[in-house]
Nucleic acid binder design. Structure first.
Length: 738
RNA sequence: GCGCGCUUAGCUCAGUGGUAGAGCGACUCGUUUACACCGAGUAGGCCGGGGGUUCGAUACCCUCAGCGCGCACCA
C-alpha cells in the first residue's frame, strides 16, 4: 500500500495531480470518449450536453460560480459514467457593461476617465484586462474540479461570435423586428448609458409631494424641476371639477417663463390621486411621454430641459428669460430646491406632503436614480418573440427545475416590453449600423438620385453609397451584452455549420442562478427559438444564491465575500462541493457555513481511512481465482448496496443531487464504515480462508461501488483512491461504468 | 397594484395522505491498532394560528398572521 495512506487525507497532495491526469487523458472531450466505448454498442450513442454559463472575465470566481461548477460537473460526470457522449462546453464572458464599470473603477484610481480615452485604446486595454482575468479564472475552474472540454472553450468576443451576433442583428432588422426609435430610455447619469427594463430596480423612497399652483389649477409633483419641460396638463374626462377646462389653454407661471398649456383629458389620470390634475412632461417621464403620444395632434412634444449629465439645460428653450441663467447647469436636486424657493416666493406652493412614499427607479449597479431620457436607440420588438417562448414552456418542451419559476417566467413574458439593446459604452460588440457622415455629396451623374440616399445602412463593413461620396460613420453604441449572450447556446456550438451544433443542440440542461432568469434564460429561449428555430435547452436548473451563514447577501461593501479558492486551499475542492450540494434544493438560497465544509473535509478523511483499511486488508487477496462463498449477510449487504445505487440513480435523473449526495454520504459513513467494516473485522483475522476471502470481496466490491457513486460529487479523492485499488482492467474512474 | 414563495428540532434545511427526518450544534459514555478529521448512546418538535375535505393532514382546500422575493407608468 502506498505510504500516502499513512497520513490523514491531504487534498493538496492530490487535487492538482489528479486534475492534470484527467486533462491529459483527454476524456473531457466527448470525441475521445467514443474510442473507449464498448464495441457492442453499435447504435448511435446518446449525447448529453451542457453549455457552461460563461463567467465574467472581469474578476475572480465567487461561491455562486463554485455552486454552478459543482452542479454541472455532477451532471456531466454522472452522464459520462452512464455512457453518454458528454460535452460540457466552457466559456468566458466579456460581460459588456459589467466589465466596463469594473475597468472604469480601475482607471479612476489612476486618475483617468473612460470618457477621455480614445475608443480603440480603451477597447484594447479592456481586452488585455479580460484576457488576464480569463486565464486566472480558468485555473480557478480547474481547481474546483470541472471536467469541461477546454479544447472547445469559447469567449464571447471570439471573431465568429461577434460576426454571427451582428448577422443576427441584420436578420432581425430585415425581418422588421428591430427598429431605431427616439424614445424615453432608462438613463444612468453616472454610467452615462441607457439600459433595458431589467437593469433597473425600483426602490421605495419618501419624497415630498409638492402641490403647485398651476394657472387656474393645482398639480401635485415630486419633481418640480421638470416643470420647465411641461407641455400640457391632463385631467380625467369624468372629473366634473375640470370638465369645462378640457380643451382650453391655460397660462402657467413657471418662474422663468409663462407657459401656455392645453388641458387634455386622459384615462391615465386618477381623479383621486393628488388634485386630479397632472402636469405633462413628455421628455422626462414615461407616463407623460405616452400621454403625449396619445395626444400628438393636440399638444407640443417633448421639451428636454435636463441633459445627459442630469443638469438643467434651459437657455436654448428660454433664451429671453432673465431668470433662466441661475438655473442653467444646476443638478437636478439643486434645481428642485431652487424652484421650490422661487415658487414659494410667488405664493405658488399650496401644500407639501412630506409623508409621500413612492417607488423610484435606480441603476441596478450603482443605485443612482434613473433619469428617463429621450434618445435614439435600437429596440427589438418582443411580443412576437415572447409568444413561442411562452409556448415552449407550456408545452413542456422546456422544463424548469424547480417548477414554480414557470409562473414567474410567464408573468414576465406576458408583460414584456420592447428591448433597448443600445449601450453607450465601448466594451462590447459594435452595432453594425452606419450613418451618413455629412449631407449627400452627389457623385457625378447621380445628382437626381441623391434624394434616395439612405440615412442608415445596416452592414458589418463600411458601406458605400450608390449615388454619393459621403462617408459613413459607424454606430458608436454597442449591443446590450445579453443580446449576444442570449444566443450563446447555439453560437458557442458553432451555429449553423459545425458538427457540434448538429450533435449537441438543443443542449440538455441550462444550469444557472434564478437571479438571471429574465436577463439571460428568457432571452436565450426567445432568441434560440427565433434564430436557430429550436429550443436552446430541454431543462433549466435554477440554483439559489449562495449567502453568508446569516443569510445575508455577500457583497464587497459588507466585506462578507468568501473566495472559493481559499476554501479549496483549506478544506479541499471535494469538501467544498459537498457543502454546496447537500441539502441545497434548487431555487432556494443557501446559507453557506465554513463549519459545513469542515464536516465534509472530515468525511473525505473518513473515505480515506476506510479505503486504507480495505487496502490493508485486501493486500493479500491475490488469489483471485478462488471462488467466493458469500454468507447470507454478505448477500444482504450486496443487495442493500444495489438498492442504494438504484435509489441514487433515480435521484440523479430527477436532478435531486441534494438528496443523492446525502444518501451516499450517509450510506458510506453509517453503513459501510460503521457496520460493514466492523462486521468484517473478525472475519479478516479468521483462520477460515473462504470466509476471509468473502469478507475481502465484500469490502472491495462495496468500496469500489461507493467510489463510483461518490465520484460525481467528490471527484478528486475518489479518483485518487481508485487509482490505488488493485483491479483488473482498471481505467480512470471518470470513465468507469456507473 | 399584479404575481411568486416561505413559516418543520437551538441553527441550516429535507420530507410524505397514515400520528416526524438529516447535517451541524448540545449532553453522556468510550482512548476497541482504518479513522478523535473517531465510535456507542441521549435529549430536543401540539410540522405558524384558525377552519374545511378525509377513517386519518405536517402534507390537499380555504382563511388569517408574520417574513422574503419578483414585476409594475399613480403624477
Amino acid at each position: 500500500m502506498n505510504e500516502i495512506f499513512n497520513k490523514p487525507y491531504n487534498s493538496k497532495l492530490v487535487e492538482e495531480k489528479i486534475y492534470s491526469l484527467w486533462e491529459k487523458s483527454g476524456f473531457f472531450n466527448p470525441d475521445n470518449l467514443l474510442l473507449t466505448k464498448v464495441k457492442s454498442q453499435k447504435s448511435k450513442v446518446k449525447s448529453f450536453s451542457i453549455i457552461m454559463p460563461p463567467p465574467n472575465a472581469n474578476g475572480s470566481l465567487h461561491l455562486g460560480h463554485a455552486l454552478m461548477i459543482a452542479l454541472e460537473d455532477i451532471m456531466i460526470r454522472y452522464k459520462r459514467m452512464a455512457g453518454f457522449k458528454t460535452l460540457w462546453l466552457p466559456g468566458a464572458d466579456h460581460a459588456g457593461f459589467e466589465t466596463q464599470i469594473v475597468y472604469d473603477k480601475i482607471i479612476e484610481k489612476e486618475g483617468r476617465s473612460r470618457f477621455e480615452i480614445p475608443r480603440e485604446k480603451l477597447y484594447q486595454e479592456i481586452w488585455d484586462f479580460t484576457q488576464k482575468n480569463k486565464a486566472a479564472m480558468e485555473n480557478q475552474i480547474r481547481r474546483l474540479g470541472a471536467s469541461c472540454d477546454w479544447s472547445r472553450e469559447k469567449f464571447t468576443l471570439d471573431a465568429d461570435i461577434v460576426s454571427k451576433t451582428q448577422d443576427a442583428f441584420i436578420k432581425f432588422y430585415k425581418d422588421g423586428l428591430i427598429y431605431r426609435g427616439k424614445r424615453l430610455v432608462h438613463w444612468c447619469v453616472k454610467h452615462q448609458t441607457g439600459f433595458s427594463d431589467v437593469e433597473i430596480v425600483h426602490e421605495e423612497s419618501q419624497n415630498p409631494l409638492y402641490y403647485i399652483k398651476y394657472g387656474p389649477l393645482v398639480v401635485a409633483t415630486v419633481r418640480p424641476e421638470t416643470i420647465f419641460g411641461d407641455t400640457a396638463v391632463a385631467v380625467n374626462l369624468k372629473d366634473k371639477r375640470y370638465k369645462n377646462l378640457i380643451g382650453k389653454e391655460i397660462e402657467v407661471d413657471v418662474v422663468i417663463a409663462k407657459l401656455k398649456l392645453k388641458v387634455i383629458a386622459d384615462e391615465f389620470v386618477d381623479p383621486i390621486f393628488g388634485t386630479g390634475a397632472v402636469k405633462i412632461t413628455p421628455a422626462h417621464d414615461f407616463n407623460d411621454f405616452e400621454i403625449w403620444q396619445r395626444h400628438k395632434n393636440e399638444i407640443e412634444g417633448p421639451r428636454e430641459v435636463i441633459n445627459k449629465y442630469g443638469k438643467m439645460n434651459l437657455v436654448r428653450h428660454f433664451p429671453d428669460s432673465a431668470e433662466v441663467k441661475k438655473y442653467e447647469g444646476l443638478k437636478i436636486l439643486e434645481a428642485r430646491k431652487l424652484i421650490i424657493e422661487d415658487l414659494e416666493k410667488r405664493g405658488l406652493i399650496k401644500k407639501i406632503d412630506a409623508t409621500y412614499k413612492h417607488n423610484v427607479a435606480k441603476c441596478y449597479k450603482c443605485g443612482t436614480t434613473i433619469e428617463p431620457r429621450l434618445m435614439e436607440q435600437w429596440f427589438i420588438k418582443m411580443a412576437p418573440l415572447a409568444k413561442p417562448a411562452i409556448e415552449a414552456i407550456k408545452s413542456g418542451k422546456i422544463k424548469f427545475i424547480p417548477e414554480n419559476f414557470k409562473k414567474i417566467y410567464f408573468h414576465w413574458m406576458k408583460n414584456i416590453r420592447d428591448w433597448n439593446i443600445s449601450r453607450q459604452i465601448v466594451w462590447g460588440i459594435r452595432i453594425p449600423a452606419w450613418y451618413h457622415e455629412l449631407k449627400c455629396i452627389p457623385r457625378a451623374g447621380h445628382e437626381d438620385k441623391v434624394v434616395k440616399c439612405k440615412e442608415i445602412i445596416i452592414s458589418k463593413t463600411e458601406p458605400k453609397c450608390e449615388f454619393c461620396d459621403a462617408k459613413f460613420t459607424q454606430e458608436t453604441d454597442v449591443f446590450d451584452t445579453w443580446f449576444s449572450s442570449g444566443q450563446w447556446p447555439f453560437l458557442a456550438l458553432g451555429y449553423p455549420d459545425l458538427k457540434e451544433y448538429k450533435n449537441f443542440y438543443p443542449t440538455d440542461v441550462m444550469e444557472t442562478g434564478w437571479d438571471i432568469l429574465f436577463f439571460w434564460v428568457a432571452r436565450m429561449i426567445m432568441l434560440g427559438l427565433y434564430r436557430a428555430g429550436k429550443i436552446p435547452f430541454k431543462n433549466v436548473y435554477l440554483h439559489g444564491l449562495v449567502r453568508d451563514s446569516y443569510k445575508q447577501k455577500m457583497s464587497k461593501s459588507k466585506g462578507n465575500v468568501i473566495n472559493p479558492i481559499e476554501i479549496v486551499e483549506k478544506y479541499g475542492a471535494d469538501a467544498l462541493r459537498m457543502a454546496l450540494i447537500v441539502g441545497n434544493t434548487p431555487g432556494t438560497d443557501l446559507a453557506f457555513s465554513e463549519e459545513k465544509v469542515k464536516g465534509y473535509k472530515n468525511f473525505a478523511n473518513k473515505i480515506w481511512q476506510a479505503s486504507r483499511f480495505v487496502l490493508i486488508n485486501t493486500a493479500d487477496s491475490n488469489e483471485k481465482a478462488k471462488k467466493v462463498k458469500l454468507t447470507q449477510n454478505d448477500k444482504k449487504r450486496l443487495k442493500e448496496f444495489e438498492a442504494l445505487k438504484k435509489k441514487i440513480t433515480k435521484q440523479m435523473e430527477l436532478f435531486k443531487f441534494y438528496i443523492a449526495a446525502e444518501e451516499i454520504y450517509h450510506y458510506f459513513w453509517h453503513t459501510f464504515c460503521d457496520k460493514i467494516i466492523e462486521e468484517m473485522k473478525p472475519r479478516l483475522n479468521n483462520d477460515n480462508q473462504n470466509d476471509k476471502i468473502a469478507a475481502q470481496y465484500i469490502l472491495m466490491e462495496i468500496l469500489k461501488g461507493s467510489l463510483k457513486l461518490l465520484h460525481p460529487f467528490m471527484p478528486f479523492i475518489t479518483e485518487e483512491i481508485y487509482q490505488h485499488l488493485q483491479l483488473d482492467d482498471k481505467k480512470l474512474l471518470i470513465i468507469e461504468k456507473w
